[in-house]
Amino acid sequence: MADIEDLADLAERISAIYAERFGIDRDATWYLGKMTEELGEVTSAYLKLQGQGRGTGTRADLEDEVADLLGFVLLFARWQGIDAGAALERKWGAYLASDQ
């Protein structure tokens, strides 16, 4: 399994290529809009896979959309100076400490 920072680096490299190719200014509207768009695509892929959406979907479609969403979450976190891994450990890990 890849390290979360390695995944964030990968997302950044691909995002920079995409932004340059299409002349995109990666601003707040772009980061937030892309996360929202990808969450909608995850929802759509899941519903299709369950036979509840238009058309048919595959497990690979769902996995691809989850990958896109994760990529944009990591990009947003990096843009905001958030260490996503540390934030997850702090927030979710606190439940383990209080559970014992």
Rank of each mutant, 00 (worst) to 15 (best):
Q50S: 02
L96E: 12
I17F: 05
G53M: 00
G93Y: 03
D99S: 10
E65M: 01
L39N: 06
A97D: 13
G23Q: 04
A28I: 12
F72Y: 12
L88K: 11
W79M: 07
G33C: 00
Q52I: 00
D27Y: 04
F22K: 09
W79I: 07
D68Y: 08
Q80P: 07
L75R: 07
I17Y: 09
K48G: 02
T29I: 01
V73P: 05
D6M: 14
R78Y: 06
R54M: 01
L49V: 06
L69M: 03
Y18P: 00
A11T: 12
V42G: 04
L96R: 15
T29K: 06
T29L: 14
G71H: 06
R13F: 09
A86L: 10
Q100A: 11
G55C: 01
G81S: 06
E12F: 07
Y95R: 14
L10H: 14
E41N: 06
L39T: 09
G53Y: 05
Y31V: 06
E38G: 03
Y95W: 12
A60Y: 03
L69P: 03
M1P: 13
A60C: 00
E63M: 14
A8D: 06
A86Y: 08
E41G: 05
G33N: 03
S44W: 02
K34I: 15
M1S: 14
T58Y: 04
A97I: 13
A8W: 05
E65I: 03
A28R: 14
S15H: 11
K34D: 09
L88V: 02
K91L: 00
G40S: 03
G57H: 03
G57C: 01
D25A: 12
